[in-house]
Design a protein around this nucleic acid. Structure first.
Lengths: 110, 110
DNA sequence: TGCTTATATAAGCACTTAATTATATAGTTG
DNA sequence: CAACTATATAATTAAGTGCTTATATAAGCA
């Protein structure tokens, strides 16, 4: 159920989550395709726990969703979240990161 | 000079500034009318230094501009800033705060 | 079953941030 | 000029955040 109405109090945590370089980059990548944790680790060149912790925050806020497929857990943007409209409008400004997308695709072993 | 192009790195600090309850409320109020510091202090029921420090951050990022008029310094949204387009799109979602606007108008002594 | 891989979680730490209190600056008014 | 008002700045502190290291969980495979 998408809402056009959103309170200031509801906006703040969403903007706070988007106002982080790592998380905004994750969004930029997930816009291209869903990704498992190890692909994001490769692309962002960050530790696995660090990526996982960012994903947890995004998941807790229902901004992304996860789907386990075997050993892998695929994350994708949750377009069904209540305030996706705000997220969408912000994401419109986020440029693609072709270099990172490339690195993500070359992620081996996962 | 407004830009449609904005890098991820440029977006992050803007979203970080907007992802704060006090600052987002200030924006909501400034959208209605420019305001001096003491009006914002009244409306938000926060200390003057706290409000001033938030305004400084917004000014440093060029998201608001100031204009001294006698003892008072009036703040307003800087619509000429480079990345106002992003700000504008976010602000579209921020609801008006009629109660705070009322309190702001009743600010005495300034 | 035991080993490996993918991911999550927990604990600790460094850094940042937002508030408070105190003080400084600048304009106004007597 | 002195007193007052509006605002800014500085120093301190408490809380929050993001990273690292270490460990736990869970799935796949020999």
């Amino acid at each position: 159920m998408l809402k056009t109405e959103i309170t200031l109090e509801e906006m703040v945590p969403i903007l706070k989550l988007l106002g982080d370089r790592t998380r905004l980059t994750i969004f930029s990548l997930l816009r291209t395709k869903q990704a498992c944790v190890c692909e994001l680790v490769e692309a962002l060149e960050m530790s696995q726990p660090s990526i996982s912790q960012h994903l947890r925050k995004l998941r807790d806020a229902k901004l992304v969703k996860e789907e386990r497929r075997g050993q892998w857990i695929y994350y994708s943007i949750n377009e069904e979240t209540t305030h996706y409209l705000l997220v969408e409008h912000v994401l419109k400004f986020v440029p693609d990161q072709p270099d990172l997308i490339e690195k993500m695709k070359q992620a081996k072993g996962c």
